[in-house]
């Protein structure tokens, strides 16, 4: 379907040399040293992002990419500046967008008759602490009911400047999703009408879905009482 892809699932046959390896993990479950009884201590895994795809993308993907480029052109945005790259992986189409052009891209995707991605299915956060300069990602899932197509947008922001423009003005249903992504990842969506916590308590410190946030060890406050985490209540070693 695409360059270098022969697998029916759309997977690259082998890890391509152009794959963007951002991290190498050893072991599992965050355990290190002799205390690792998980059986996974010798495991070595590369965390790689799928490489940018070349044309033709296959199927309707080229159509959408062309329509998006011409719509951006018509709106006065340089498509090459807005779209960092296009990734086709597992038969799914993703656009990596530079954050300053996110709103232009979303407007084009929603309004252009050939695109018509009317439905916003959500924005997810991803945290890659080792990927310097683009640690935080916001991943948008859009659905075109008119054409029955789905695309994914990926926008990155550095941890030092975690700002991404809010798409609530274009997709009102993004409201709660952006609150959730802020709550869990600390991504600040500029222009959101009320960016407050949605899942965690209002006074919760930290953003618990970040990779560097611990699984346990967080004291829980309830009705004025503080319950210490299990690992500090008693010593097991």
């Amino acid at each position: 379907m695409t360059d270098g892809v022969s697998d029916p699932n759309g997977l690259p046959a082998t890890l391509s040399p152009s794959a963007d390896v951002i991290n190498t993990r050893r072991g599992m479950f965050g355990s290190h040293g002799s205390g690792d009884t998980s059986g996974y201590g010798g495991l070595v895994r590369s965390v790689a992002l799928p490489p940018p795809s070349g044309r033709p993308y296959g199927g309707w993907f080229d159509e959408v990419a062309d329509a998006l480029a011409s719509a951006l052109d018509a709106a006065g945005t340089d498509p090459d500046a807005a779209i960092d790259n296009v990734v086709v992986d597992r038969n799914e189409l993703s656009f990596v967008i530079r954050r300053e052009h996110l709103l232009a891209v979303c407007s084009a995707l929603r309004d252009q008759p050939d695109l018509r991605f009317e439905m916003f299915s959500g924005v997810s956060g991803v945290h890659y602490p080792e990927d310097a300069g683009r640690e935080l990602r916001a991943v948008y899932h859009l659905l075109s009911i008119t054409h029955n197509r789905r695309v994914r947008l990926e926008v990155s922001a550095p941890d030092a400047d975690p700002h991404i423009p809010s798409v609530v003005g274009i997709y009102p249903s993004a409201d709660w999703h952006e609150r959730e992504t802020w709550d869990f990842f600390g991504l600040i969506f500029d222009g959101h009408p009320a960016l407050t916590r949605i899942e965690m308590p209002d006074d919760w410190p930290g953003h618990p879905q970040r990779k560097d946030y611990p699984l346990g060890g967080i004291p829980v406050e309830y009705k004025g009482a503080t319950i210490p985490p299990p690992d500090t209540r008693r010593s097991y070693s």
Binding site: I198, E199, M200, P201, P208, Q209, Y213, L215
Partner: peptide, 12 residues
């Protein structure tokens, strides 16, 4: 307030 069902499944 919708956070009452959030149990941190993703983190676990």
């Amino acid at each position: 307030g919708i956070g009452y069902l959030h149990t941190g499944i993703e983190k676990s």
